[in-house]
């Protein structure tokens, strides 16, 4: 629809500022994420990683600056944000599954309500997604019966059910017991092969290094450094990144 010169840019962020009251969380972030690119957003806690991610589907409204998704300015008042969000999936640290619906209903709900898929279609696609994340046998179970890792895999399937072009992951493994981290990372790794655009806020440095095309290093609300992972992890330029990596590795 929108013919832009950079038609392969999925997300463009232009001088993004966000404050909560007096607290300045984001202080002028500009970057681009290309279609099919996987970026890992890392940085010390309080650096604004999650806020940055949540701005990309307007769960947080930027104080100033612009964000374009597929060339559409999502901060413009006339933009239908609900439409944009259908195209931008999000996975949360604490899963946020709907507790009063079975696993399959969780996955089927949005396609039926938002995309008006028929029950049968939604069911078929839902089961397909659940088997992709290895949980087909849990379809009729309520979320409270699942382990953390299973919950997060369902949450990923629920987001994918809307067939988004962009997936946002907000510390998807931080709330998990260590033995469950791997199963979630494996699902995400599979996902990188599908050509979907991914932005991942994470503390899993090994994972970031392995799957990301690019590292965005945030510090005190600024984009302190961005580089391909091999370059970033081997030769961090800024002092803050060096300090951070020393603590993490």
């Amino acid at each position: 629809m929108h013919s832009k010169e950079d038609s392969n840019v999925a997300v463009k962020v232009d001088r993004l500022y966000k404050s909560f009251g007096k607290l300045k969380v984001l202080q002028g972030i500009s970057t681009e994420i290309k279609q099919g690119e996987v970026v890992a957003i890392i940085g010390p806690s309080g650096s604004g990683k999650s806020t940055f991610l949540r701005c990309m589907n307007l769960l947080e409204v930027p104080t100033s600056g612009k964000i374009y998704i597929d060339g559409v300015d999502i901060t413009a008042p006339q933009t239908n944000i609900m439409r944009i969000r259908q195209n931008v999936g999000m996975v949360f640290q604490h899963f946020h599954l709907f507790p009063h619906m079975t696993v399959l209903k969780n996955v089927m709900y949005a396609p039926i309500k938002v995309k008006h898929l028929s029950q049968e279609e939604a069911r078929r696609e839902g089961l397909e997604l659940l088997s992709k994340v290895g949980l087909a046998e849990k379809a009729e179970v309520y979320p409270s019966k699942l382990s953390g890792g299973q919950k997060q895999r369902v949450a990923i399937a629920r987001s994918l059910a809307m067939k988004p072009e962009i997936m946002l992951f907000d510390e998807p493994t931080s709330a998990l017991d260590p033995e469950m981290v791997k199963e979630v990372l494996e699902v995400m790794q599979d996902l990188t092969q599908t050509g979907i655009t991914m932005a991942i806020v994470t503390h899993e440095m090994g994972f970031a290094r392995e799957v990301a095309d690019r590292i965005l290093f945030l510090d005190q609300g600024r984009l302190a450094e961005e580089a391909p992972p091999e370059e970033f992890f081997a030769h961090p330029k800024s002092d803050r990144a060096i300090q951070f990596l020393e603590k993490m590795l």
């Binding site: 589907n57 769960l59 969000r85 949005a110 938002v114 629920r158």
Partner: peptide, 29 residues
């Protein structure tokens, strides 16, 4: 939980079905 709102919103679910299907059933319970 606030997360229930955010999960619904991030799936593009409009206000009315979000309230009727997600928020109110949990509130009523």
């Amino acid at each position: 939980d606030k997360g229930q709102w955010e999960a619904s919103l991030s799936l593009g679910v409009p206000y009315q079905p979000m309230m009727l299907d997600i928020i109110l059933p949990q509130a009523l319970k």
